[in-house]
Simulated assay, not measured.
Amino acid sequence: MERLIDDASRRVRAADGGGDQPTVQQLMPGLRILRQNSPSSFQASLYEPVLCLILQGRKQVAIGEETLSFGPGECILVSHDLPVTSRITKAPYLALTLAVDVAALRELYDKVADSALDSGPARVVQKHRADPGLLDAMHRYLALADSPADARVLGALTSTEIHYRLLTAPFGGMLRRLMRRDSNASAVARAIGRMREDIRSPITVPELARRVGMSSSSFHKHFKAITSTTPLQYQKDLRLLEARQLLQTGGPSVTTAAYEVGYESPSQFSREYARKFGVPPSQDLADATGTA
């Protein structure tokens, strides 16, 4: 763990501006170093399947009514695209994040699947203390950034090892269920994919349930159990997150952003935006364009 902290700190130090804004560096495919020098307020975002390993500091992640707190040596594993709110509670904060490659997991699962893999906790967000094998593999993957030749040959192999360790770990239960195409976890993932493909179109629970081969009641039950929210609220969160990204990059007007993400009423959009993010959409746009 100490070697991993030293290596990550060395790499990010040169790019650290010393201010309150986070420093983000990507050194290997899917692998990023994040550093922040001060605590932050809660911020809404969409987590795609990811492993986040805390090296220094502490972080809180809220999913529905549950809040997880994790610190040095602990990791959080997210199996589905998930709207969350999170904040840094102790700084300096240093973490590694690795995008989880679902296709790579499925190929591995086909090779190692057996009844033993069906055991273990099955939660969409799983907190766990990183074991020595995972820490070593993460460190070796990070170290490959020093040698492009080694990275070309060993990068894919080391990434595969990390995914294998996640898939077979005691806390990888939801990942294992996700790999089974007949599972509820897989059905919910397909429904989420459908919503993300076209966030503008209205959805109905019966339509989504039909698309993934489930009854409406069963689909609603399992969707909420996995994501801690309802399908309609999930789509609303997707729309608001997409709109905020548009506005914070100095994009369209508030009204245009509302229509682009599927709202029919700009006033309703503004109310729900302010309720979720704590500021009106006009403020985010003004901050982005320097017209405040």
Results as ranks from 00 to 15, higher is better:
residue 1 M to K: 00
residue 7 D to G: 00
residue 7 D to N: 10
residue 9 S to D: 07
residue 10 R to Q: 13
residue 11 R to P: 00
residue 12 V to H: 04
residue 13 R to N: 03
residue 16 D to Y: 02
residue 21 Q to D: 13
residue 24 V to F: 12
residue 26 Q to Y: 05
residue 27 L to C: 05
residue 27 L to T: 11
residue 29 P to D: 09
residue 29 P to N: 10
residue 30 G to L: 10
residue 30 G to M: 10
residue 30 G to A: 08
residue 30 G to Q: 10
residue 34 L to S: 04
residue 36 Q to I: 00
residue 37 N to C: 00
residue 43 Q to A: 13
residue 46 L to V: 07
residue 50 V to S: 07
residue 51 L to S: 05
residue 52 C to P: 00
residue 56 Q to M: 06
residue 59 K to C: 08
residue 60 Q to M: 07
residue 61 V to A: 03
residue 62 A to H: 05
residue 63 I to F: 00
residue 65 E to R: 13
residue 66 E to Y: 07
residue 71 G to D: 15
residue 71 G to C: 12
residue 72 P to N: 08
residue 75 C to V: 15
residue 76 I to P: 00
residue 76 I to G: 12
residue 76 I to H: 05
residue 77 L to C: 09
residue 78 V to K: 05
residue 82 L to E: 06
residue 84 V to W: 03
residue 89 T to Q: 01
residue 92 P to M: 02
residue 93 Y to H: 05
residue 97 T to R: 09
residue 100 V to R: 09
residue 103 A to S: 12
residue 105 L to N: 06
residue 110 D to Y: 02
residue 110 D to W: 02
residue 112 V to P: 00
residue 112 V to C: 01
residue 117 L to A: 05
residue 121 P to K: 01
residue 121 P to W: 01
residue 123 R to W: 05
residue 125 V to W: 03
residue 128 H to D: 11
residue 131 D to M: 07
residue 133 G to T: 11
residue 133 G to A: 15
residue 134 L to C: 04
residue 144 L to G: 11
residue 149 A to G: 00
residue 150 D to R: 11
residue 150 D to P: 00
residue 151 A to T: 02
residue 152 R to C: 01
residue 153 V to I: 15
residue 154 L to R: 12
residue 158 T to N: 13
residue 159 S to H: 15
residue 160 T to K: 14
residue 162 I to R: 14
residue 167 L to G: 04
residue 167 L to K: 03
residue 170 P to M: 06
residue 171 F to Q: 03
residue 172 G to S: 02
residue 176 R to I: 08
residue 181 R to F: 04
residue 182 D to E: 15
residue 186 S to A: 15
residue 193 G to V: 07
residue 197 E to S: 13
residue 198 D to F: 09
residue 198 D to P: 12
residue 200 R to S: 08
residue 201 S to L: 10
residue 203 I to N: 10
residue 205 V to H: 02
residue 206 P to G: 00
residue 216 S to N: 00
residue 229 T to H: 07
residue 233 Q to R: 15
residue 233 Q to S: 12
residue 239 R to P: 10
residue 240 L to W: 11
residue 242 E to H: 11
residue 243 A to I: 05
residue 245 Q to D: 13
residue 248 Q to Y: 01
residue 248 Q to F: 01
residue 249 T to N: 13
residue 251 G to R: 08
residue 253 S to M: 06
residue 254 V to W: 06
residue 257 A to G: 11
residue 258 A to E: 04
residue 259 Y to H: 15
residue 259 Y to E: 14
residue 260 E to C: 04
residue 267 S to Q: 14
residue 268 Q to H: 09
residue 270 S to P: 00
residue 272 E to G: 06
residue 275 R to D: 14
residue 276 K to A: 14
residue 277 F to N: 05
residue 278 G to C: 14
residue 279 V to E: 10
residue 282 S to T: 11
residue 284 D to I: 01
residue 285 L to D: 04
residue 288 A to I: 02
residue 290 G to N: 02
residue 291 T to A: 01
